[in-house]
């Protein structure tokens, strides 16, 4: 069982906004603080497509450019608001038929933002 190197992401407002736009997600809660608060959130927060992308990045940072990601399954927990820090940790738990399963957790100051698994063919 291999433990992956930790990935820390400083979730600045710029990060939330730029990733939301790069994933073509224009919902106001991801870029407009006033609207986000009016809708009951503390601040703008990370969108799901970015969370999925970060989980994938966390694994490929470790596995390298030759890896083939076969699937990303995530369960969403607490939101990740601006000014928080998101820390990913993970471990490769098994390999079968050439596909390695990596368990991933992304935590912030409020708790588990994301838990999930990534299936990846290592080079």
């Amino acid at each position: 069982m291999t433990v992956l190197p930790e990935l820390r992401v400083e979730v600045t407002p710029t990060f939330i906004v730029s990733t939301a736009l790069a994933t073509r997600d224009f919902q106001d809660v991801h870029h407009d603080r006033d609207r986000a608060i009016a809708r009951g959130s503390k601040d703008i927060f990370l969108n799901i497509l970015t969370t999925t992308g970060l989980v994938q990045r966390f694994v490929t940072d470790w596995a390298g450019p030759g890896a083939l990601v076969r699937g990303v399954s995530i369960r969403l927990g607490v939101p990740c608001y601006a000014y928080d820090t998101l820390v990913f940790s993970g471990r490769a738990v098994s390999t079968s038929d050439g596909v390695t399963t990596v368990e991933v957790v992304g935590r912030n100051s409020m708790g588990d933002h994301v838990t999930g698994t990534v299936r990846v063919v290592l080079p």
């Binding site: 992401v9 990060f15 730029s18 990733t19 736009l21 790069a22 994933t23 073509r24 497509l49 970015t50 999925t52 992308g53 970060l54 989980v55 994938q56 990045r57 490929t60 940072d61 450019p65 030759g66 990601v69 990303v72």
Partner: peptide, 23 residues
Amino acid sequence: WTEALGDGNSAYPELAPPAMVQV
């Protein structure tokens, strides 16, 4: 996408990141 997410994987952009499929 790679710039915003800070993903330095050299397989991109010759290949698209798979997690971008929904994008």
